[in-house]
Design a binder for these strands. Sequence first.
DNA 1: GACGAATTGGACAAGAGTGTCTAAATTTGT
DNA 2: ACAAATTTAGACACTCTTGTCCAATTCGTC
Lengths: 229, 229
Amino acid sequence: MKLGVSPDIIPSRGHEAKRVSIMDAASEVFCRESFAGANIDMIAAEAGVSRQTIYNHHGDKEKLFVAIVRDLTERCNAGIFATISTFPDQPRDLEADLIAFAVRMNRNCICNRDGKFLRKLIQTEGERYPELFAEWREQGPGRTWPAIAARFARLAHAGFLDIDDPDVAARQFLALANAELQTTFMLGGTPDEDEVLQSATNGVRTFLRAFGKRQPAANASKLGALTNA
Amino acid sequence: MKLGVSPDIIPSRGHEAKRVSIMDAASEVFCRESFAGANIDMIAAEAGVSRQTIYNHHGDKEKLFVAIVRDLTERCNAGIFATISTFPDQPRDLEADLIAFAVRMNRNCICNRDGKFLRKLIQTEGERYPELFAEWREQGPGRTWPAIAARFARLAHAGFLDIDDPDVAARQFLALANAELQTTFMLGGTPDEDEVLQSATNGVRTFLRAFGKRQPAANASKLGALTNA
DNA sequence: GACGAATTGGACAAGAGTGTCTAAATTTGT
DNA sequence: ACAAATTTAGACACTCTTGTCCAATTCGTC
C-alpha cells in the first residue's frame, strides 16, 4: 500500500513523531516504575498521546517493552562503538589520553540517558526475559568488550603497555574507571562531571601502575622489576 | 502484658517461625517480581501461610517491604564486618591471602542469598524509597568501605603495599575483584565458585601489580619487603 | 485436657489496570 | 479543498490486587 517513492522509512512525519515520543516516555516510565509498576495511561500522559495510539503502534504493553529494550540496546551499542573508535591508538600522553577516553565512555555510554535506562531495565527485568537479555549480552558486552580488548592489545603490541591478557585488562580498565561510581549507579543516580573525572583519573592511574611500561627513556632503574614473574 | 520471665525475645515458637518464613518468602518474591509485581497471595503461598497472617504480622505491603530491606541490610552488614575481620593483617603469601579474602567477600557477602537480594532491591526500588536507601548507603558502603580502607592502610604502613590513598585503593580492590562478574550480576545471576576465584585471582594480581612493593632482591625471603618503607 | 492466642480460608468491597470498541475530531498527502 | 489515514476521548468488560472482616480451626502452654 506504499505510494512507490521515498516515504518508506518515514511514512508520515506526525506518525513517526508520536512513535518516538511514545518510546521516550515509555523508557522513562518503565525505568522509573518497573514493568509491573508502569501503566499505559502514565506513558500516554507523559508522551502527550492518547492511550489508544499506544495500542495502535505497539499492540500491547509487553511488545512495547521489548521494542524499547531492543531500541536502547541498539543505540547504546552504536554509542559504545563510536566511542571505541576514539581510543588513543597513538597516545601522546598515555595517562591523559586514557583518562579522556574513560571519561568519554562514561559520559556518552554509561551515564547518559540511554545507558542509564538500559542498565536499569537489565537489572530490573533481566530475569523475567531471559532470551531478550541474552540477546543484549551477545550484542552488548559480547561485542564491545572484545573490541576494547583489541585496542589494548594493539597498544601493548606497540610497546605502550605491558599486558598479558587483553580481555582481562579491558574488563579491569572499565571496572577501575567506574570504581568510585558504583554506589551512585546502584541507586539509579547520575554522577556529575567531576565525579566521573575523578573516578576515571584514579582508575587510569592505577591501571597504568599495573600495566604501564616503566618509564623507558630516562630512568632505567625500575626496569629490572619487570623480569621476575 | 508479658508473662514475666523469658518469653520476651521469642513470644512463641510457631509465631516466630511464621515470621521468618514470611520474611524469606517475601524477599524472594519482591526480588523476583519487583515491589509492584509482587502480590501478597504469592508471598503467602510461598511462605506456606495464609494471607491474613501476613497482614497480622506486618500491617501492609509497604511495611513488609521496608522491614525486609532493613533486615537484609543488617544481615549483609554483619556478614561484611565478619569477613573484614578475616582480612590478612599479617600475610604469609600476600597474593594468595588477598585472593582468599576477595573470594570470601564475594562468596559470603555479595553472591550469597542476602547479598543478591539486597543488591537487587536497591537497584530496582532505590529511587522510590530515597530515605530508606540513603540509610542503607550510610550503614552499608558508608561504614564498610572505610573499614576495608583501614585494613589496607595498615597493610601499607606495615610495608606490604605502596598505597597513596587507602580509600581509593579499597574501592579499586573491590572493583577489580568483581571485574569479571559484572555482567552476571547485572542479569541477577549467581556466578559459580570457579568464576569467583578466577575474577578474584585476576583482580588481585592486577591490584598487586599496581600497589605491591617491587619484589626485593632474592625471592627466597619475602620478609625483606618489610624493611624498605 | 483446657484455655487463650494465633492462624486459617473464604467472602467481600473498593480500586486500579489492561485491552477493546466507538464515533467524532484532527492531521496528512495530493 | 478533499479523501484517506490517524488520533482522540470516553465508555466498557474483565481481571487482578489490596486490605478488611469473621467464624471456625489449630496451636502452644500450662
